[in-house]
Design a protein around this nucleic acid. Sequence first.
RNA 1: GGGCGCGUAGCUCAGCGGUAGAGCACUGCGUCGACAUCGCAGUGGUCACAGGUUCGAUCCCUGUCGCGCCCACCA
Length: 980
Amino acid sequence: MTITLETTYSPADIEQRIFDAWMKADAFKSLRDDRNNADKYSIVIPPPNVTGSLHMGHALNNTVQDILCRFERMRGKDVLWQVGTDHAGIATQMVVERKLAAEGKPTRQEMGKEKFLEAVWDWKEESGGTIIGQLKRLGASCDWERERFTMDEGLSAAVRKVFVELYNEGLIYKDKRLVNWDPKLLTAISDLEVVQIEKKGSFKWERCSDEEFDAAALEKVLKKDPHGHMYYFDYPIMTLDDNETIVGYIQVATTRPETMLGDTGVAVHPENEKLKHLIGKMVCLPLVNRLIPIVGDEYADPEKGTGAVKITPAHDFNDFEVGKRHKDNKVLNINIMNKYGKIINESDYDFNYYSVISHILGQDVKIPKPFQGLDRYAARLEVIKQIHALGLLAKIEPITHTVPYGDRSNVAIEPFLTDQWYVNAGELAIEALAAVKDGRTNFVPKNWEKTYFEWLENIQPWCISRQLWWGHSIPARYGLRRDDDKTSISQYKLFVAETDDEIKHQVYKYYEGKFDKEHIDFVDEFTFGGNTTDERGTVLIVGKDPDVLDTWFSSALWPFSTLGWPENTEHLQKFYQTDVLVTGFDIIFFWVARMMMMGLHFIKDKDGKGIAPFHTVYIHALVRDAKGQKMSKSKGNVIDPLELIDQYGADALRFTLAAMAAQGRDIKLDVSRVEGYRNFATKLWNATRFAQMNGCAPVAGFNPATVQHPLNQWIVGEVERASIAVTQGITDYKFNEAANALYKFIWNVVCDWHVELVKPILSDEAHAARAETQATLAWVLDHAYALLHPFMPFLTEELWGLTATRAQLLTLSDWPQLANLQNKSVDGEIDWLISIITQIRTLKADLRIEPKLKIDLVLIGARNTTQLRIASHEEALKRIGRINTISYADALPQGAAQFVQGEATIAVPLAGVIDFAAEKIRLSKDIEKLTQDIIRIEGKLNNTDFRARAPAEVIEEQEENLAMNSEKRAKLALALKALG
RNA sequence: GGGCGCGUAGCUCAGCGGUAGAGCACUGCGUCGACAUCGCAGUGGUCACAGGUUCGAUCCCUGUCGCGCCCACCA
């Protein structure tokens, strides 16, 4: 047989070639002809952002999915691993805007919506989805032909259908309330996209202790970071008679002084003994000179702050609720900021809105000139200065508090009163909760269910509209109300439907045929502005909703939209419900919970019961750097998986991640582990090389149950043991256990022992067991390739192809399912052999006997079985143990080192070679250790409670241990004595 | 404030009611034609601490200390 293998394995040379072979064979296609009748197995990939590139989290996530898919494919299933990318609204829009800026091109606003979207699509075609190629480098066995994108026409149709149906069911609605507004990206964002950032101030001032208020110093501090301070203002309380005299002050505290311009009340707790007498009095809001009421509300905690809270309903979530409760007291919303986070000026005024409020309050609500148009932080400083000038600034305290920031824009978000679209998530959560509570869907590890429950049980309406351009348009249109339909407070008539045709039909019906369908025009902006005239005659203008949907809205549909829903496709029928969702805990809320809601709501079984999108959710760890820090570009601690693949191969990286993927703990990735597993790949490579050099080749019809030689009987049992452990590990999602079982089996069992022990047989061409051993080793390695394949697909496929002419690629071959190959008596025999060799080696090392020196063994007290074993394994013993002769004696020879193996004492006569003092020390050490053990075990056995209550097999085991150790100690004692 | 998790060898981590494990690092020694990306032998641990349950606790329970994360709040 010719040797075809190099001495080392170089992944770079083979990975691409192997991947091409898989693709050429359509190995990863779903609905393969040869699997028509097979059970299905399906996973949908967490779609990476189209802007993304492969990071460690992806590498782990997709390694896990690939292990599962390859495993199930080898178990014969019809596997669909559905792949695709997410359009990632904000992220993509930002990337393209940055690119345009870098190229000196016009801005998004200058280009206009249509041109800009063209530019985004161009970008997507050109450089979007590089991550897809990177997933292939990792070896991901997705059904690549079925790649989907969340903005594909089919998926967009699914989005529109879901939106319209939920709207018609009342589960999607438009509402005016406070949202998290991002003043940089100029869009609303959901609660989940807000991150809390801790801020710490440093400026301190108190009216009574400091002479002079140092405005310049404060300005300097606030310029660096506008957050981190608590300001105390004294609000004057007025009489309401004609004199309007100040009768006292009420002190309020705030971290956001600029919002005081929009205060419409002050709240104190109705049972606050110190302050409740003020309820009903009026405060003259400083700077603005507007009268606002002091109201009683339980929100005002007497223990916190000053006990009195300024209420700005239009700029604070809690205040908004207080305002609603005190509408009758005229605690109204007065919006003081525009979408840029600047104090509104004359041109921003919504005249209608402010005049209505002014009218209700009977007071002017205009913002004083000096503040108009100021940025929120400039306004903050200005308010403080002017309050101080009025003598109403009591003190400034540095505090530590958290400030809400937009996770994408990294600016403080602003609670902002706007019209937005919401999903009634509370309603959809009911089924999503039930499905997990009743076990239709299970989390692995289970403790994540608690996190899932807590979030869903307290879920808020989900704000789904975004003021962006890149994304799914909201299929809503706005028209002027009919004269006879002014019942609603809203000024426009809302039309919602999946297609423009349907909307035109709705419009046509609404105006009772007054406008032809051809006489209805859509304009691309939010307007409900009447009609116009052209050559067609009178034309009705209907405004399009300019907003797009939250990216996660389409992601929520991913498990069925990718399968073709709402069409009833073959894929939808066969592969929904998917089997497992593999993801990190950081997107349980963003994605998992929402997929559950949507899947259960839209996909029903025959009885109308919702079908969850997956029966299992496997939550894996987060990959951190070797120090446990979250990897991030700004910290510069990112380990690039592609670099590791270049350096060590995809298999080594995959195996590392699998081996470290123990449940319930983060992965601190240490590159030395990757190196270690690269070495593991080389080890298997070289074992294969050895087999090839020794004429081992798969034999057709080989039956492992009928091998004769004990070494072969033993190793086929070990293969069975490994196959059980690996199968169990994968099915239990304990990938580290599966990986470790493989590592130990291949390295510590096959390579360290079987290959070594079998060398005398293989190197002797006349040996009776040679053919059987060759066939066995080939069989063992074939099984090693198969069992390792889900973890190291490239290496194993390559070796599979190099070692024989195969009918199939390994990736399409059968998963080993073995039984009845283990044999206890053979296991005992080989354990004995391994033990005796190890003892010889230890003895030689301890006594510093030259490794090259061949020694003799003399066995004393060996029973028949031992003599038979010696005879049976003499060749292996002599070769590996470097032994010259083996003989038997009745008494210990003089001048020998000794050890005990089972019932026999084994002497190594070494007079003149070894240092007997050293041997004495060695023996004494062994005896000492045995004595410790014996004392411990005796203590246990002498304990009557132990004897009374411990299980019989435990007692028996301890007794056996005691007997064994005692016997061994006695023999060693004799040996020591023999040394004199 | 609510929740989740973690403290095991120098480092990174498994494990587990019955004699404490791996990789890396470290110390010796390298001999047999698979492999120096290797082999053999070894050093190294009061399993954070304190109680409790148990015949027996690194493992289960309670508490303490230290660390991390998530959610909520923050006048």
